[in-house]
Design a protein around this nucleic acid. Sequence first.
DNA 1: CTATAAAATTGACCATGGTCACTTTTAGAC
DNA 2: GTCTAAAAGTGACCATGGTCAATTTTATAG
Lengths: 191, 191
Amino acid sequence: MAKTVQARTLKTRAKLLSAAKDLIEHSGYEALRVEEVVLKAGVAKGTFFSHFKDKEALMDQLIGARLSEILTEIEAGPVPRSASDMVAALTPFIAFATSERYVFDIMLRYSGAAAISEIGPIAQTFLQHYELFLKWVTDPALPTRDTIAPELMAEGISAFMIQAMSLNFCALHSSASVEERLEPYLEAWLN
Amino acid sequence: MAKTVQARTLKTRAKLLSAAKDLIEHSGYEALRVEEVVLKAGVAKGTFFSHFKDKEALMDQLIGARLSEILTEIEAGPVPRSASDMVAALTPFIAFATSERYVFDIMLRYSGAAAISEIGPIAQTFLQHYELFLKWVTDPALPTRDTIAPELMAEGISAFMIQAMSLNFCALHSSASVEERLEPYLEAWLN
DNA sequence: CTATAAAATTGACCATGGTCACTTTTAGAC
DNA sequence: GTCTAAAAGTGACCATGGTCAATTTTATAG
């Protein structure tokens, strides 16, 4: 008749997350194996899947949490005064998002919630950076084209950031860094 | 001592591709199973993997070929005279790319070649639509901002097209069609 | 304290992509 | 024709994510 979540549930979940974090710190996201996580956490395989829908749901949690941390730090900083400033502010985000091809892929795949009722951690961060960009483009410190709705401006920044990061994984464009590619995009978009 | 590709290689490859196409036509890309392909093609599983690096390499071939066909048809059409025109021209491409979540994911993942020497079919189509957009923005029929390099304009169109398609899979934005979302982006970007 | 039903956990088992040592086929050299 | 080395093909086997009927644990009613 108990409808509450038992204390051990939280404990098990914490053990799984902690094990996963340790393993990732050591070998990265892509190399993570469910088998290793449950072994390290000291639970059965089935337990993993009663806590996370699948392996990627765990990734959504972990990667989403990290992205959110980074965005929160960026939010705390000053409003950029130019495209170049903006690129500099976004550097930590870009660095993490492109740290592994796998991380970038998961981020893209989870950027849109499949249903409003189930907005996952990564999808949350997309709302978060949309809000951040909205704040920036409506701040007088950042001069932008005023013929374009701020909502559209914000979505555009997002689009260009993703494009610049995508090209990072493409041999044809690998000569330039993500930041070097992003700046001209933003320059053109903002003005 | 033979260094040439044997005739049977081409035959086997054709059988595999044909089997895969049939299965996909019936049940879509995501539902494709390597087991079914080799069964239908009448070859062993190992043969599949000596023709394609992995299952996704086959998808790269099939999806890339379809995308290229569509782009070639678009190329044959007239240069769009406005953002709205451009969206209309791109509709077939968008329809296929967003026909399945899986197709869109593969397209994004293979959009950048890992190495210049191995530009796959999907990566080719990104070059192809870059060329197409370049042709469009440099054509006098399509009025655009002349303060921005055509190369940048073309990359921007690409970025917005992908953004609009991404949002299609997001419940938060599902009220509008891809085309309805894309048009204001392009309007803002071109002018 | 005991009964009991829901919650949580278990691990054998399954699905499917992918590997590789071995066999068969093929294209020339003689 | 026959020999031979490379190319092509085979299928048992592996790796890993994911399932589910059965079991254990927990909270609470009485």
